[in-house]
Amino acid sequence: MPKDTSIKTATLHRMVMADHMCPYGLKAKDLLERHGFVIEDHHLTNREEVDAFMAEHKVKTTPQIFFDGKRIGGYDDLSKHLGITTNAQDATTYKPVIALFTIAALMAIAVTWLSTGSVFSGRIIEFFISISMVLLGLQKLQDVERFATMFLNYDLLAQRWVRYGYIYPFVEAGAGLLMMAGVLTWISAPAALFVAGIGAISVFKAVYIDKRELKCACVGGDSKVPLGFVSLTENLMMVGMALWMISKL
């Protein structure tokens, strides 16, 4: 009986141990299933099986995928083979800031509704900016060392006083929290105005005057967000919020 060539088959070898299940093996299995493959799923259940498999096929990692006996490679190789472009290690993306500002907007709507009973309130803008400041500060506080290092690439004050890079996340998050609560404005507004003003000038100089292509430290030290319009907007929002809060004193 002739083989049905319309059925796509793949052989997958992946680690499935009592104390470890390879995440890339699961991702490879899911990717193959989503592309309509019938999978012959081979589990490597202990270290000896893994070592023997890698020695036999002269590979250093698992999972390994085969089509009709021909080795395709691991998960990244499979993605390329199926025409799926994976992000390069240094590729730029706006996804982190889009996600952050989207969550900040939804949180602002929720807080405005809870505090005023309506979303049609001028406070929604205040909540959006202050929540964004807290979330951005939190991203930086996850790894202050890496943030401070990336920050040194373009911030004018940090380049003169290195410790400023370590202080900045605390000022940003702290000012955002105080603004959100509407307390100690005489502290939070000038602090936000100071750091955001320096930030706006630094970004403008680096991007629009010096024409440098850098990554922005706005969402942390491992950021792949390009330094530019978004970074400048973040700082200008903080400046605007600070001036607004000062005018209300």
Score class of each variant (00 low, 15 high):
Ala242Tyr: 01
Thr116Cys: 05
Ala10Ser: 05
Phe128Ala: 09
Leu156Thr: 08
Phe170Asn: 01
Ala173Asn: 07
Gly220Val: 02
Val162Cys: 02
Glu33Val: 10
Thr102Leu: 10
Met241Thr: 03
Phe229Trp: 13
Gly69Cys: 10
Arg163Val: 15
Val144Asp: 02
Arg71Ser: 11
Pro63Glu: 04
Thr92Lys: 12
Tyr75Trp: 12
Leu178Gln: 00
Gly221Tyr: 05
Tyr168Lys: 00
Met237Ala: 15
Gly165Lys: 01
Arg34Ser: 13
Phe67Leu: 14
Thr9Met: 14
Arg34Thr: 09
Ser202Ile: 03
His43Met: 13
Val16Gly: 02
Ala181His: 03
Phe120Met: 13
Ser115Met: 10
Met107Gln: 07
Lys215Ser: 09
Pro226Glu: 04
Phe67Lys: 07
Thr185Cys: 06
Asp77Tyr: 07
Tyr164Arg: 04
Ala206Ser: 15
Leu138Gln: 02
Tyr75Gln: 07
Gly36Pro: 06
Pro169Met: 06
Asp77Val: 07
Leu12Met: 06
Lys27Pro: 04
Ala55Arg: 11
Gly137Tyr: 10
Ala28Gly: 06
Leu157Ser: 06
Gly25Ala: 11
Ala181Lys: 07
Leu114Ala: 14
Ile7Thr: 15
Asp30Asn: 13
Pro2Phe: 13
Lys211Asp: 09
Gly83Ala: 07
Phe37Val: 04
Ile246Phe: 09
Leu249Gly: 10
Pro226Ala: 07
Ile209Trp: 15
Asp41Gln: 08
Phe120Gly: 08
Ala196Gly: 13
Ile39Val: 14
Pro23Val: 09
Glu126Lys: 08
Gln142Lys: 14
Met150Ser: 08
Lys3Gly: 11
Ser188Lys: 03
Arg34Gly: 10
Gly137Ser: 09
Gly25Tyr: 08
Val50His: 04
Thr185Arg: 09
Thr185Ala: 09
Phe204His: 10
Ser247Leu: 09
Arg212Ser: 11
Thr11Trp: 00
His35Ala: 05
Glu40Phe: 12
Thr86Lys: 11
Met133Tyr: 04
Ser121Val: 06
Phe204Ser: 11
Met17Leu: 13
Arg47Ser: 14
Ile198Gly: 03
Phe127Ile: 01
Ile84Ser: 08
Leu177Asp: 03
Ala110Trp: 08
Val97Asn: 02
Glu126Val: 10
Ile65Glu: 00
Ser6Met: 12
Pro226Ser: 06
Lys3Cys: 15
Val38Arg: 11
His43Asn: 14
Pro169Glu: 03
Met54Thr: 12
Phe120Ser: 12
Ile129Trp: 01
Gly199Pro: 06
Ala108Ser: 07
Leu214Pro: 02
Leu44Val: 10
Met15Gln: 12
Arg123Asp: 15
Leu32Ile: 12
Leu156Met: 12
Glu234Tyr: 09
Arg14Ile: 03
Ala217Pro: 01
Ala105Tyr: 07
Ser247Gln: 08
Ser247His: 10
Lys3Asp: 14
Ala91Leu: 05
His42Ile: 10
Leu12Pro: 00
Phe194Gln: 00
Met241Ala: 13
